[in-house]
């Protein structure tokens, strides 16, 4: 799962990484209380699980109550890359001397954790220049490696020590929480010479959730997603109107592609998993029926079995006509379908 900035910062704080004072809220009333506690000026930052917040107007300066009153609801009402605001973070402003970049990520092609650091941070990773790259196996960063990276960053004295310290703390956090990515961008050198994490990105390995009860409070799921997970499905909701269901992630992705190629708009990606059973397909169709935007369902199951189906309801005659020459056998009542299935299998 991808944590929001303020959640990532909660973890940073827990691991002793320097941060500016900040508070997260969901309503302007809460925001006003935080404003009093922090004092002006500060920035308000939309909390969404995607990048590009600044460009979309999701980060605004506030100098006084009037500006807060005006900008808080504006920022809270933004939708960025389809993501609505989960919260608003108020964060003190401070004088920055220089912005650095620091991250530790799971390097898929090298199959190890890798540090990326750069003296030129504050921009998206793709455009970060002068990258220093160090492979660190399972993620543990020794004093020696930390100092080496600081040196390559051309930092010295106390700044080098502080940088090495933050790098090791970030590594410890990455290993202990089983993150796929822990990023501080920018990691700022302040006018007073201290180092501060001004933004944080943290992505954990969902497959290790069972070892991390402490992270589950960050999990956000719609009711439908929760049901899907319980049934062992993978579900990604999309904004089109044709639901796509199948067994196997690759097959469903491929179906999504073909549907889009032909001008269709997928409403969801739903993979019922490798061993599709009657129950799982039934549950999948039930879930889809709860999605309001769905106008049609495209099912692509790779099974070498006959399908017995009961189809009744508005426009079922049309559906029946369409399935006339298929291997799917259609029945009016569920009893007939069950009988046919039982008899069919016995043969």
């Amino acid at each position: 799962m991808r944590l929001l900035e303020f959640q990532a910062k909660e973890l940073f704080r827990e691991y002793g990484i320097n941060l500016l004072p900040s508070k997260a809220s969901k309503t302007i009333e809460e925001g006003k209380i935080h404003a009093k506690e922090l004092g002006y000026p500060f920035v308000i930052k939309i909390q969404v699980p995607v990048g590009g917040r600044g460009k979309a107007g999701g980060i605004q300066k506030c100098q006084n109550d009037d500006e807060l009153e005006l900008k808080y609801p504006q920022v809270l009402g933004l939708t960025i890359k389809g993501e609505k605001a989960r919260a608003i973070l108020l964060e003190k402003m401070a004088d920055i001397k220089k912005e650095l970049y620091l991250s530790i990520f799971l390097n898929r092609s090298k199959r190890c954790y890798t540090i990326i650091a750069s003296p030129e941070g504050g921009v998206e990773i793709e455009s970060v220049k002068n990258q220093i790259i160090k492979e660190v196996g399972l993620g543990n960063v020794s004093d020696e490696i930390a100092r080496e990276v600081a040196k390559e960053m051309k930092l010295d004295g106390k700044l080098a020590d502080d940088f090495a310290d933050i790098l090791q703390k970030l590594a410890k956090l990455t290993v202990e929480k089983e993150a796929e990515l822990a990023e501080i961008n920018p990691l700022a050198i302040m006018q007073d010479g201290s180092l501060m994490a001004l933004d944080g990105k943290f992505v954990t390995d969902d497959n290790s959730n069972f070892r991390h009860d402490e992270l589950q409070k960050y999990q956000e799921k719609t009711e439908i997603e929760e049901r899907a997970e319980k049934s062992g499905f993978s579900l990604v909701e999309l904004d089109g109107d044709i639901a796509v269901v199948g067994n196997g992630a690759g097959l469903v992705m491929s179906t999504l592609d073909m549907l889009s190629d032909n001008g269709g708009k997928p409403a969801c990606f739903l993979d019922v998993g490798g061993g599709a059973t009657t129950e799982s397909v039934y549950e999948a169709l039930t879930l889809i029926s709860k999605m309001n935007r769905v106008k049609g369902i495209l099912v692509n199951l790779l099974i070498s079995l006959p399908v017995f189906s009961r189809l009744k309801g508005t426009e079922s005659e049309k559906a029946r006509e369409m399935l006339k020459n298929s291997r799917t056998k259609i029945y009016d009542s569920i009893e007939d379908a069950i009988n046919a299935a039982v008899m069919g299998i016995k043969k």
């Binding site: 993978s234 469903v252 992705m253 190629d261």
Partner: peptide, 22 residues
């Protein structure tokens, strides 16, 4: 053959590894 041309960014498409970052 490459699956996932129509997949949105930053969403895991069923497989833990099937995710586009940037």
């Amino acid at each position: 053959y490459i699956a996932g041309r129509a997949a949105p960014k930053e969403k895991r498409m069923g497989h833990a590894g099937a995710i586009v970052m940037g």
